[in-house]
Structures are given as C-alpha cells and as structure tokens.
Design a protein around this nucleic acid. Structure first.
Length: 258
DNA sequence: ATGCCTGGTGGGACCAGA
C-alpha cells in the first residue's frame, strides 16, 4: 500500500494539480488537508473519475480533511477528534482500509504564540494524545497521518534559530509531538532517513522553494505492527514546482501487503 | 526581520495560513 498525505491548500483551487499528481503518483490511499470547502463543494465526481472513492469532512473557507482510496469506498470509522464537543473545526477523519486504521489530521497552526490560537493548538494536541493512546490499546495496525504543523527537531527546519518562538516550533509543541513518539508511535520518514534534511513545506514568498527554505511538518506516525511493514518513503517535490500548486508537497510511505 | 504569496469570501479589503 502506498499511503500519502497532501495538504492541498484548497481542493477546488488546486483540483488540476491534485488530479495530475494522483495520475502520476498513483497512491493507494491519500490523506488530504485544507480542503477549504464545505461538504457540498467537495469535487466528488472528478475524484471518482480519477478512480478514487472518498470520505470528507469539509468546512466553509478553512480546514477540511478527506481520505481517498483507489478503487474502493473508504469505511469511515470516525469524524472529528473526541474530547471537545464544542470544537467546530474540521480537522480529523478516519477510515479502516485493508485492516489498517488510518487517521487523517490537520493540527491547528497555533500562531500567533502565545495567544488563544496557540492555546487551542495545545488543547488539540492533548486530545490527540488521549485518542492516540486509545488507538494503540486496540492492538490494530494504525497510522496517524497528515499536517501536524510541528517541526519535530532542528533538522526539520531550514533556519531553526528563526523559528524558535513560532507556534510550529515552540518547545511546548515539540514536546507534545515527542510525547506521541514516547507513547509508541514511530515517525516513519525519520525512521528511514535519520540524518537527512527532508522538507514537505515551503512558503510561497521570497522564492523559498528554489532556495529550499523549507520545513518538515507533514508526518506519518505508525503503530509498532505497521512499522514492520514499512518499506520506503518519499516527498514528491516535483509537484511543489508546478504552477498554481500548494505550498506543501505530497509525502508518501510504502507498506508491504500482509 | 518581515505573511514578502495565495485562496476564500464576496464583490473590497479582510482573514488565515506557517
């Protein structure tokens, strides 16, 4: 199974780019973030025509997540992260696919920090921590996939010293990410490339992509049984170079079939 | 050092993103 994550930054504005990438990369499962569209504006027919079944949790203007599966309809197991019934953001959707629970998440950005948005990010992280513990207790292969809006270490930032006080890099959020790792989740890309500089996001301005001034913020966290199936990973930087593209590049992992 | 770009909304500048 080739499992990918892609923050599309507007699924309708980037539909041509998304379809082009699906055609070239041919992932089996795709976790999408930042649909920036309400449920009724999800481009279901075009996604179907590309050969993918889909579930989605949209929202007007912002956020929004979806899971695409090639040649089948995803079996939805959850929509919305538990722990706060008043949370109106569409940031989590989950499906069971070929015996694997795949959670697609879009963690809050949290800027400016400190402030209410940063507080919301930390609260969301706490809820994710609680739920991630429940998932591991199920003793089923699980993956938490998506835009975590966290650079886990200095290696994941082009200029760490400039990002120290940013909501994506402050000690609190790096600690929250590290807590997930300590709980038993494995960062798939970092496992396969412990020392390589790998980015998944580049700002639009100041020619950041050409300068490779990037961040690694899109991650695959795998339960221990899934780690055994991990074969390869990559970042499709070629799609970041396209016209009218997202500020993120798609990232993917390859799992062997059991 | 900095939303420097970009999309969405709504029909003009904003808000949000990272």
């Amino acid at each position: 199974m080739k499992l990918a994550t892609y923050n599309v930054n507007g699924i309708n504005g980037r539909l041509e780019v998304l379809l082009r990438w699906l055609d070239q990369a041919k992932p089996d499962v795709v976790c999408l973030q930042e649909l920036k569209a309400p449920d009724e504006k999800f481009p279901r027919r075009q996604i179907e025509r590309a050969g993918y079944g889909a579930i989605w949790h949209g929202q007007k203007s912002w956020n929004g997540v979806a899971i695409l599966v090639r040649g089948q309809e995803p079996l939805e197991t959850r929509r919305g992260l538990p722990g706060d019934p008043d949370d109106t953001h569409s940031r989590y959707i989950e499906a069971a696919i070929d015996g694997i629970i795949i959670g697609c998440l879009y963690l809050p950005n949290g800027n400016p920090a400190p402030g209410p948005k940063f507080d919301y990010k930390l609260r969301w992280f706490e809820r994710l921590h609680s739920y991630a513990a429940q998932l591991l207790e199920l003793d089923v292969p699980c993956a938490l996939v998506g835009d975590f809006n966290v650079m886990p270490t200095d290696l994941d930032v082009y200029k760490p010293e400039r990002w120290r006080d940013d909501a994506l890099f402050r000690p609190e959020v790096r600690a929250a990410y590290a807590d997930l790792i300590a709980m038993g989740w494995t960062d798939a890309i970092r496992l396969l490339h412990p020392d390589d500089q790998i980015y998944t996001f580049w700002k639009y301005f100041r020619n950041a992509f050409a300068r490779n001034a990037g961040l690694r913020i899109d991650h695959f966290l795998l339960s221990s049984s899934l780690v055994e199936q991990l074969q390869a990973c990559g970042v499709d930087k070629f799609a970041r170079a396209w016209e009218h593209t997202s500020d993120h590049a798609p990232a993917w992992i390859e799992l062997d079939d059991r």
